[in-house]
């Protein structure tokens, strides 16, 4: 048997390396699926919640939109107001005991993380949509765009770009918080670590390895997202080369990249 901290770490890595890797893979998969689906859910919710009917809209439409908005805000409040670990239990065992549905644990994980993330994303994206100044909406209306054209061509691209830091943050949160899914036996990193630790009763050594893996995952993702943000924000200046002294001089343009 190994007799020091480092020899234990090496021993455990050698013995359970594949297990750690598989756990990290499942964690990453849940975080990616949950964030992407959550983003789509959140986007849909935010679009409906920021809808405004024209003053001549009829009563059934008004009523329908009112009810939808109420339901969506109930969804957001409930999923932001309860812990994800509890949501996982309720969904997994609720489906099993009351609907007779034995959903695979990984499927339940995707569902819970997506819907949970969707509630946060909805608020993030609603803020993003409202932050685009009213003037641009008026300009879009004034050249005859429909509400849908205005949203897809002008508002949403800006809203999504402005909220990218927060969206990336949700992704990092999901990498870490998917660990609570061990309660429904999803084979993610934390669950795998627990089973590895149990065999030799080496909790500190195993979870030391686990924390390093989590950190590498989140740190890499954070850097990648920052790079993407930088690329999307583009340059602040547009250089045209001309004569300083004679403003009518011919100008040549260098494309910004």
């Amino acid at each position: 048997m190994p007799n020091s901290f480092f020899s234990w770490v090496l021993f455990l890595l050698d013995k359970y390396g594949a297990l750690f890797l598989k756990g990290a893979g499942v964690t990453l998969l849940i975080a990616i699926v949950g964030t992407v689906l959550g983003f789509i859910i959140g986007l849909g919710v935010a679009i409906v919640r920021t809808l405004q009917l024209p003053p001549q809209a009829n009563r059934p439409r008004r009523f329908f939109l009112g009810v939808s908005k109420w339901l969506l805000s109930a969804y957001i409040e409930i999923f932001r107001g309860t812990p994800m670990i509890v949501q996982a239990m309720v969904v997994y065992y609720g489906a099993l005991e009351y609907l007779g549905l034995d959903i695979p644990a990984l499927g339940a994980a995707f569902l819970v993380v997506s819907v949970n993330t969707g509630a946060y994303m909805a608020e993030i994206l609603r803020g993003g949509i409202l932050s685009v100044d009213k003037g641009q909406k008026e300009a879009a209306t004034a050249i005859g765009m429909t509400h849908w054209q205005m949203m897809t061509l002008v508002i949403l691209p800006q809203a999504v770009k402005n909220t990218l830091p927060s969206v990336g943050n949700e992704f990092v949160v999901n990498i870490k918080d998917s660990s609570v899914l061990n309660v429904i036996s999803v084979t993610e990193l934390y669950f795998m670590s627990k089973s590895a630790a149990g065999t030799y009763w080496k909790y500190f050594e195993v979870f030391f390895i686990t924390s390093v893996i989590y950190f590498v995952l989140t740190f890499t993702i954070t850097r990648l997202l920052r790079l993407l943000e930088k690329k999307l924000s583009g340059s602040d200046s547009y250089t045209i080369y001309g004569s300083q002294s004679h403003s009518k001089a011919e100008i040549k343009i260098q494309q910004p990249h």
Partner: peptide, 27 residues
Amino acid sequence: LHAKVGMVFQQFNLFENLSVLKNCTAG
């Protein structure tokens, strides 16, 4: 109506996500 009655705004209200050319072609 909006195509036939154009409007120029005090605060310009250009579409910030689009290039100058795209601002002119999108509509």
